[in-house]
């Protein structure tokens, strides 16, 4: 027993046809022919122990599954931006607060153990006055 379905590629995306076919490959032999951009032929061949009624039911179920997959495909593509935004927000919120650098104390910059916050005058003024004092003593 054989049957052929000719599907319009504009109505049924190829991904949906693949998905529906995958559901049935354990029950019926399936082959694809034609042009994936225009008309896609799906050839069904009954397995040895399949009755005529069962075979017809399988082909009918395939068509329903195809509609199911096509609708799913449409919903997926129409909701893609919303889904991406939701995932991005979920990932950002999962990150939590960004880690605080240093010891976490907001005023820790006030401590200046290396003296890098001092101005040039503050750092070298004392040395100059010391030198002047020394010179004065000599004279």
């Amino acid at each position: 027993m054989n049957e052929t379905l000719v599907l319009d590629a504009k109505l049924y995306p190829l991904s949906a046809i693949y998905g529906a076919a995958y559901v049935f490959i354990d029950k019926v032999y399936i082959r694809f022919e034609g042009d994936p951009a225009k008309k896609i032929k799906v050839l069904f061949k009954a397995k040895a122990d399949t009755s005529r009624e069962d075979f017809r039911k399988i082909v009918g179920d395939f068509e329903n599954e195809l509609l199911n997959y096509s609708l799913r495909d449409q919903i997926v593509s129409s909701n893609q931006k919303i889904r991406e935004t939701l995932i991005a927000q979920a990932l950002l919120s999962a990150l939590g607060d960004l880690p605080v650098q240093g010891n976490g104390d907001e005023n820790s910059f006030v401590d200046d153990p290396l003296g890098i916050a001092k101005t040039w005058e503050e750092r070298f003024e004392n040395k100059k006055t010391d030198k002047k004092k020394k010179q004065c003593r000599c004279n």
Binding site: S15, Y18, Y22, I25, Y29, R31, A48
Partner: peptide
């Protein structure tokens, strides 16, 4: 008697899995 049809289904299954 079965190998051609079974093989074609198997290739189809692998193709769908890969996509």
């Amino acid at each position: 008697s079965l190998i051609i049809d079974e093989f074609a289904n198997y290739v189809l299954g692998q193709t769908v899995k890969a996509k």
